[in-house]
Write a protein that binds this DNA or RNA. Structure first.
Length: 650
DNA sequence: GGACTCTCAAGATC
DNA sequence: CGATCTTGAGAGTC
């Protein structure tokens, strides 16, 4: 820690001649891949359809359900079959369009005719949840289950918020989504175990109790103590295997490695019933037995979301053991069991980081290697830190910080449209033309998260009469997260957030200068490492949107709209915002989404980044740069290090 | 804006 | 199979 030793060299006034030209990603050598080796390219038309969001992702085996399409063979065959998945999904969607509008429920079954299911006769993608990986998971399965949960939950929120009379409706989309996943068997790590949960990493964050349940980290939907029956007999022979410290009880969570956890029970059940003494039974008894057994106990710490105090975030803080227990008088005057849990040494930090970040934000301390408090020089509403803890005080190469996308000339994309709402646009209000432009669905849930990826999201424009607080302006509100541009050991500069990020949250726009002539792109990409190009094709498709069949919905027909979206190419070499520091990954945690809104009587395209999954603080933000369609384009070696790394990008 | 109350929920267990 | 237990999350209130 070299606290307080910086506070200089804001890049806008550093001596350009002395600054090394640091690329966002280190370029090793040009890489040319023959077509036989190249990964499958999807929908190569520059006008779309949108390359990333619409081809269903099959991360796991189809178990021979797409015969003849699986061309990888060997080990790969039971992992991923992107070719087959795309072939199937693409054709079935086209067939489904128009014909099956009415038979929503039926169509799901008939579309899948001939496919054998392993679970509840649901959609074929559920077949990936095999008895094997439902019992014991891995990272891929955990991420898949979490992504499915949140996609379903977002959709249920969207449907719910559009409803006029919320009587008998889904008030708890999280519980409903949990129920859908449980009943369809979309879950993992169902086998209870002592110690680590395969695929769940220390530091992982969760926004709902059900998320923790469906990945098998903690097997109680509400209760704070989960137990494992050790001998075939009574419940008495149980050990505590995981606990959630949520704030409901008076736990002491001050120390980053020690947790004083309260036993369960004794709370007043209703207004009439008084608090009572806790008894040495159930979870309390299991904790007591675990004290003597000294077995590992998983600890999940709940805390307020620094972004939104009404939201609670759960952080998996790794394994602890119980060292002591005692009985004391609680605030109500009744006896409460207390357990002292101590974190096992040698685990990567998780909860401790949250404490550090709080101090940084409060100005009580600084991260090691802080060079600048704000590389945006005040352009952003929230400061953007610059940190180099790797090689001294070197700063990124010179550029002009801009929060907006600069168009050199106006491009009329569609007829500009403004809505006629005079407060905030209301989900479900089909009189609102902005909502109609989005196909009738409000693109964002009330929490501000994007519900589904689409070819194009139509936001309300600055000229719409609705309030600036209208929820349909998410990408126009600027940075909300506390960002940090930081130096990595091997990938140049990178971007991360001090705040936790919920899946679907808006992160930032890709600011820069629009490159006018798409025909001239071939040359531009050669020299400019800060090009963003919507016509690049993503090397790996994935499914972010909810699976309609899980909710007995028909597959929406997106094929007719947005066929004429032109390619958008942006250079952030000279002008840009934090987005220019985001590196490529083949397994990214961020994706981009085209947004359109009206400005000065013309409609303009924007590129907005959203969180693909929940992102813990200080995790590098990455997106898939995609692959240029120009064969002469210079490709670069990928250093993302993910298991499914395709080896190159660009 | 935040602390509080109210309401309606879920799975596990017995 | 249903009652009981154990709180979570969102909305509404002051």
């Amino acid at each position: 820690m070299e606290e307080g030793s910086f506070r200089s060299s804001i890049p806008t006034y550093v001596d350009k001649s002395k600054v090394l030209d640091v690329k966002p990603l280190r370029t090793l050598k040009p890489l040319f891949v023959s077509s036989a080796q190249a990964p499958p390219l999807f929908s190569s038309s520059p006008s779309g359809p949108f390359p990333s969001g619409f081809t269903p992702f099959y991360p796991f085996s189809m178990n021979g359900e797409s015969p003849g399409k699986n061309q990888r063979g060997g080990m790969a065959s039971d992992k991923m079959d992107v070719d087959g998945a795309n072939g199937n999904a693409g054709s079935s969607r086209k067939r489904g369009a128009g014909k099956q509008k009415k038979a929503a429920r039926k169509s799901v079954g008939s579309r899948n005719a001939g496919v054998s299911f392993t679970v509840n006769g649901g959609a074929n993608f559920i077949a990936r949840c095999t008895p094997f990986n439902k019992e014991d998971g891995d990272r891929e399965m955990v991420e898949y289950v979490l992504m499915t949960f949140d996609a379903v939950r977002r959709r249920l929120s969207q449907v719910e918020e559009a409803r006029e009379a919320p009587n008998g409706s889904i008030k708890r989309p999280d519980l409903k989504a949990g129920n859908v996943l449980m009943s369809k068997g979309v879950r993992t790590n169902m086998r209870k175990r002592i110690g680590a949960t395969p695929g769940v990493e220390i530091g992982d964050i969760f926004f709902f109790r059900f998320e923790i349940l469906v990945v098998g980290l903690h097997g109680q939907s509400m209760g704070g103590i989960d137990t494992l029956i050790t001998k075939g007999g009574k419940g008495d022979d149980s050990l505590a295997i995981s606990i959630v410290s949520s704030g409901y009880y008076d736990d002491d969570t001050e120390d980053k490695d020690v947790l004083i956890y309260s036993g369960q029970g004794g709370n007043p059940i209703s207004k009439e019933k008084e608090a009572s003494d806790q008894k040495l039974e159930k979870g309390n008894l299991a904790l007591e037995r675990s004290l003597h057994q000294a077995n590992e106990v998983r600890v999940i710490r709940g805390m307020k979301d620094p972004m939104n105090s009404s939201v609670k975030i759960y952080v998996y803080d790794g394994l602890y053991t119980i060292k002591e227990s005692w009985l004391e008088k609680g605030k109500s005057g009744c006896s409460v069991f207390k357990y002292k849990l101590v974190r096992l040494p040698g685990q990567r930090s998780a909860f401790a980081d949250w404490n550090s970040i709080q101090k940084w934000k409060a100005g009580l301390s600084s991260p090691a290697g802080l060079i600048s408090q704000d590389i945006s020089s005040g352009a952003e509403k929230i400061t953007v830190a610059l940190v180099n803890d790797v090689d001294g005080r070197e700063a990124p190469s010179y550029f002009t910080y801009s929060t907006v996308l600069r168009y050199s000339r106006s491009i009329r994309l569609t007829n500009p449209s403004v809505c006629n709402c005079h407060k905030a646009c209301q989900p479900g209000d089909l009189n609102c033309s902005c909502i109609r432009n989005n196909g009738g669905d409000f693109p964002y849930a009330s929490s501000g998260v994007l519900v589904s990826q689409k070819p194009l999201v139509h936001e309300c424009s600055p000229t719409c009469p609705c309030f600036p607080t209208c929820k349909n302006r998410v990408s126009q509100s600027g940075l909300k997260l506390k960002m940090e541009v930081y130096k990595t050991t091997d990938k140049g500069w990178a971007l991360r957030s001090w705040d936790p990020i919920r899946a679907g949250s808006f992160i930032c726009e890709y600011a820069g200068e629009v490159v006018d002539s798409p025909s001239g792109l071939q040359g531009i990409g050669q020299e400019d490492d800060y090009i963003f190009d919507t016509s690049r094709v993503l090397g790996q498709s994935y499914k972010w949107n909810y699976e309609p069949s899980l909710l007995n919905e028909e597959i929406p027909d997106e094929s007719t709209e947005n066929d004429n979206i032109p390619a958008l190419v942006i250079s952030a070499k000279n002008v840009g915002n934090v987005a220019r520091f985001m590196n490529h990954s083949c397994n990214p945690n961020v994706f981009w989404q085209l947004i359109q809104y009206e400005q000065n009587r013309d409609s303009f395209l924007h590129v907005a980044f959203f969180a693909k999954k929940h992102i813990p603080p200080l995790t590098e933000l990455t997106y898939d740069y995609g692959i240029s369609q120009f064969e002469t384009h210079r490709r670069r070696n990928c250093l993302c290090g993910s298991e499914k790394c395709r080896g190159f990008f660009g």
